[in-house]
Simulated scan of single mutants.
Amino acid sequence: MKIKMNNRKIGYTYGSVSGHYPFRKKSSIAYESLLERDFLIMLEFNDSVSEVVGQPLSLIYKNKNGKTVPYTPDFLVYFNEPNTPLMRLKRKPLLIEVKPKDKLEKNFCEYKYRFKQAIKYAQENDLIFKIYDESKIRTQYFKNIMFLKRYQRLNFDNEDIDEILSFLYVSGNNSIEYVLEYFCVTKEQKGLMLSLIYNLLYHKKILCNFNQPINMETQIWLNELNEEESL
């Protein structure tokens, strides 16, 4: 199998939305749909992800008509070295295709040839090929990210931040409601404290189960171990 290393260029795509996403303000990654953009947002929030390369390579393969054509996967995702004793093996990079579920179902007979080549290439190069549709991207995890993003740029006094972090360090897991009741008296105080909690959650100073809806019963705790996240 030949590998064509020049990447495809991002241009206007009929019926879709394209652009460039400022990934962690360190790199600009091209996307060709809102679903691809949402996937990048999900990756950006995941601390186990170290780097994302857009349209990393082109594979040359024969389609169902026997014609030689190129196929360019959407992303190549690299992971950080494991930083806990429970995760001793470094995760293999992921070669990713992002497609809406209806397109996958409608065009599977066409896509299966390119996906077969992608799987083969991944196996030969110590990668894992995965396909992501909206059911794997626009999850509760993603909904929580989009909710918490509203609070990411808010500024708070260091004294208030240290107070809540110290409290969680001593007390361990607590519900958001319990923390509000412990620190606050008035409705205004609770509103400000809640915004601070959401800000700390977004920046991973404190943690919760991001796969569950965030509400007053949500348990939060101090991020002491920089817990690894799955993808």
Rank of each mutant, 00 (worst) to 15 (best):
S27W: 08
L180F: 04
Q219A: 09
I220N: 06
N107Q: 11
I137H: 01
F142Y: 10
I206R: 00
Y14R: 15
Y132M: 05
M193G: 05
R114A: 02
K106F: 04
Y31V: 09
K130A: 11
P73Q: 02
E163C: 13
S16G: 07
K2M: 10
Y178A: 08
K99T: 06
Y78P: 15
M1L: 14
N63V: 10
E217F: 13
R138D: 04
E188K: 14
I161F: 01
P73R: 04
P73N: 06
F39Y: 12
D162K: 14
K116P: 00
A122S: 15
N63G: 03
K130W: 02
V77L: 00
K205I: 05
Y132A: 02
M146R: 12
Q117S: 09
I145K: 01
Q140M: 12
P213W: 01
E227V: 10
Q140T: 13
N173P: 07
I214F: 03
Y21A: 06
M87Y: 15
Y169A: 14
E124M: 04
K90M: 04
R114M: 03
N144T: 04
L225N: 05
F115Y: 11
V69L: 13
S195P: 15
L40T: 05
D102A: 07
S166W: 01
V77E: 06
L104I: 14
K136N: 07
K120L: 11
K187R: 14
P100T: 10
S58N: 08
S195M: 15
M5P: 15
P82K: 09
N215I: 05
Y12P: 00
N63M: 10
M42Q: 10
F167K: 08
M193D: 02
S33R: 03
E36T: 11
V185N: 10
V185T: 14
Q140R: 04
A30Q: 10
I29A: 02
H20S: 13
P93Q: 01
R150L: 11
Y151V: 07
K143F: 13
M193L: 14
I137T: 02
N226A: 11
K26R: 09
Y61N: 04
Y113M: 06
S50G: 10
G172D: 03
S171V: 14
Y141F: 15
K9C: 10
Y111W: 03
L148H: 00
Y141L: 08
I128F: 07
R91I: 03
L35N: 01
E227F: 12
Y14H: 11
R8C: 08
F167Q: 02
I128T: 11
Y111F: 14
G172C: 09
N158H: 11
T68Q: 14
E177N: 01
D47Y: 00
D47W: 00
N209K: 11
Y113P: 14
D47T: 11
D74N: 13
S48C: 05
L201C: 06
F210M: 09
L43W: 00
P70I: 06
L180H: 01
E124L: 06
L148Y: 03
V53L: 12
L59I: 12
P93S: 04
E181K: 15
Y14W: 10
G11H: 03
F183I: 13
N80S: 10
F45Q: 05
H203A: 05
L192P: 04
L165Q: 08
L154P: 07
